[in-house]
């Protein structure tokens, strides 16, 4: 993979989740109080690039996971924890899960995650894993 590692071969194009270029995130900038946690978070585009690398190297499931991750990049921390909890056994009804899928798709364009959650809802219904 010619681009991998991105830190070495594509450092000039890398940006943080905050859109801040990597090269601006220096020790001096941290010392001056100009760097926040969001400046040290991965950008969705980078996750997609890593997904491409994984797929091209023969790891398609990892690639799919990284694509789902890219879609979750803008989802706030608390919301991620809440969604995770809803997917645990017997936490949500079928309707709640499909509403969650619709919400993720509409709000974040998270099509892959939405499909994944709809699939889960179907299986949960068959296997008695919905809230009783």
């Amino acid at each position: 993979m010619s681009q991998y590692p991105l830190r070495e071969h594509a450092a000039n194009t890398l940006r943080a989740h905050s859109n801040r270029p990597l090269h601006e995130i220096s020790a001096e900038a941290v010392g001056a109080g100009e760097v926040s946690g969001a400046d040290l978070r991965i950008h969705a585009d980078t996750l997609r690039q890593q997904a491409d690398i994984a797929r091209a190297s023969g790891f398609p499931q990892l690639a799919a996971n990284l694509l789902r991750a890219a879609e979750l990049s803008d989802v706030p921390n608390d919301e991620l924890l809440r969604i995770y909890d809803m997917l645990r056994p017997e936490r949500a009804s079928y309707a709640e899960l499909t509403r969650l899928a619709d919400y993720l798709e509409a709000t974040y364009g998270a099509c892959e995650n939405a499909a994944f959650i709809r699939e889960a809802a179907d299986v949960y219904r068959e296997r008695n894993l919905l809230r009783r």
């Binding site: 991998y4 450092a11 890398l14 040290l40 991965i42 690398i53």
Partner: peptide
């Protein structure tokens, strides 16, 4: 910074 690059997710 490595977290921004994500190379170690591979």
């Amino acid at each position: 910074r490595q977290r921004i690059a994500g190379d170690y997710l591979q």
